[in-house]
Simulated assay, not measured.
Amino acid sequence: MVLMKKIYICVFLVSFLVGETTQEPGICFYGEEAWTQAKDYFTQPSTCHEGRPIDCNDIPDKCRSGVYKVFPNQTQGFDVYCEMNLDEGHWTVFQRRENSYVDFYRGWNDYKSGFGNPKHEFWLGNSLEHHNGHGFSTKDSDNDNYNGHCAIVYLGAWWFNKCVTADLNGQYFLTTPDAQHRGVYWRAWKGANYSLKGSVMMMRRVSKGYTQH
Rank of each mutant, 00 (worst) to 15 (best):
Met4Asp: 08
Lys6Pro: 02
Tyr8Glu: 15
Val11Trp: 02
Val11His: 06
Val14Thr: 12
Ser15Glu: 12
Ser15Pro: 01
Val18Tyr: 08
Val18Ala: 14
Gly19Ile: 04
Thr21Trp: 03
Gln23Val: 15
Gly26Asp: 04
Ile27Cys: 01
Phe29Asn: 02
Glu32Gln: 14
Thr36Asp: 15
Thr36His: 08
Tyr41Thr: 05
Thr43Leu: 09
Pro45Asp: 03
Gly51Ser: 06
Ile54Val: 14
Ile54Pro: 00
Asp55Cys: 06
Asn57Phe: 03
Ile59Lys: 01
Ile59Met: 04
Lys69Leu: 03
Phe78Ile: 09
Cys82Glu: 00
Asn85Ile: 08
Gly89Tyr: 00
Thr92Asn: 07
Thr92Leu: 07
Thr92Trp: 07
Phe94Gly: 10
Phe94His: 12
Gln95Lys: 13
Arg97Val: 14
Glu98Met: 15
Tyr101Ala: 13
Tyr101Asp: 15
Val102Phe: 03
Val102Lys: 04
Arg106Ser: 01
Arg106His: 00
Gly107Phe: 06
Gly107Ser: 07
Asn109Asp: 14
Lys112Leu: 15
Gly116Cys: 08
Pro118Ala: 11
Trp123His: 11
Trp123Phe: 12
Ser127Asp: 03
Leu128Glu: 05
Leu128Tyr: 00
His134Gly: 03
Phe136Asp: 10
Phe136Cys: 07
Ser137Pro: 10
Asn147Gly: 12
Asn147Met: 08
Asn147Ala: 05
Ala151Ile: 03
Ile152Met: 09
Trp158Ile: 04
Asn161Tyr: 10
Ala166Glu: 13
Leu168Arg: 07
Leu174His: 05
Thr175Gln: 11
Pro177Arg: 04
Gln180His: 09
Gly183Trp: 00
Val184Ala: 03
Tyr185Arg: 05
Trp186Lys: 10
Trp186His: 10
Trp186Val: 15
Trp189Ile: 14
Lys190Ser: 13
Lys190Trp: 07
Ala192Gly: 14
Asn193Val: 04
Tyr194Val: 14
Tyr194Asn: 11
Leu196Trp: 13
Gly198Met: 11
Val200Gly: 00
Met202Phe: 00
Met203Ile: 05
Arg204Lys: 15
Arg205Val: 01
Val206Gln: 10
Ser207Trp: 03
Lys208Tyr: 10
Gly209Met: 06
His213Gly: 03
